[in-house]
Simulated assay, not measured.
Amino acid sequence: MKAQFFIRAAVAALLAGPVMAHAAGPVIDVYKSAFCGCCGDWVKHLEKNGFTVRTHNVANPSDYREKHGIPNDLGSCHTGVVDGYAVEGHVPASDIKRLLAEKPKAKGLTAPGMPMGSPGMDGPRKDPYDVLLVDGNGRTRVFSHHN
């Protein structure tokens, strides 16, 4: 009788594992410099918004931007990769969640440069900025606007 209980409990635990892993939120790999404070602040923003973040300190984060098809003129200081999409720069978690829900045919999102007031770029002012969707040919369109 005890053996059946333990077997059932073990099977239930194994079946619950994938569900519990999924409940932790989307996993995003972030490629950044070890010396960049704003990148670390963006990672904290993602974690506060339900993402599981795997941080990779790399010598040249722009290599990952290029590898994932984001043009250099749309670059920033770090690149994230989630579910096959690139996320370049200080893109808000809400935009990433929308991207994952809508699943457009695209390379990913970018918040070019380092807009003041974007997640991780907190400071004395908040500048308006656009988050751009980058298609397979490197063309962009405004995905969201932030004031």
Rank of each mutant, 00 (worst) to 15 (best):
S144C: 12
S33A: 09
G80C: 10
M114E: 07
G113T: 06
H68I: 05
M121K: 05
T140H: 14
L132P: 11
E47N: 10
T55F: 01
H90C: 10
L100M: 07
G120T: 04
L133F: 03
V19L: 09
K97S: 07
G89F: 09
L46M: 10
A101S: 01
A13R: 09
G138S: 08
W42N: 04
V131K: 07
M121D: 10
Y129N: 07
G117V: 14
D83F: 15
A106P: 03
L100I: 12
D63E: 11
H22I: 10
V82G: 00
A106I: 08
G123V: 14
W42Y: 06
R65G: 02
A9H: 12
A23N: 15
D122Q: 13
L109A: 13
C39F: 02
S118C: 12
G69W: 12
P115Y: 07
R139Q: 06
H68T: 15
I28N: 08
G123S: 04
S144N: 13
M20L: 14
G89N: 05
L133R: 05
N49I: 02
L109P: 00
M114L: 01
N137S: 05
Y129I: 07
A10Q: 14
V30F: 09
C39Y: 02
F35Q: 10
H90T: 12
A23I: 14
D41W: 12
G75R: 11
V19R: 13
N60I: 13
L133A: 09
H78K: 05
K126T: 09
D135V: 06
A59K: 02
D127R: 14
A13H: 03
V142D: 04
V11I: 15
R98Y: 05
A13S: 02
N137K: 00
T55W: 01
G75Q: 10
A86Q: 15
V91H: 03
G113L: 03
K107V: 07
V19K: 09
V53K: 04
V81A: 02
D130K: 05
D127A: 07
L46T: 02
P112S: 04
A93V: 09
D130P: 13
H90V: 15
V81L: 01
E66L: 08
I70C: 08
N49S: 10
S62R: 07
G84W: 05
G37L: 02
V131C: 12
D41E: 06
A10D: 04
N60M: 15
V30K: 08
A9W: 14
K48C: 11
G138P: 13
P92E: 12
L46F: 08
D63V: 14
G136I: 07
G80S: 13
G89S: 11
D41R: 08
D95Y: 06
C39S: 00
V30M: 09
A16H: 06
P124N: 03
D127V: 13
F51I: 04
R65D: 03
G37T: 03
K105Y: 09
V53L: 00
P71Y: 02
L100Q: 12
T55Q: 01
K67P: 00
A34K: 15
G136H: 05
K67N: 00
S118D: 09
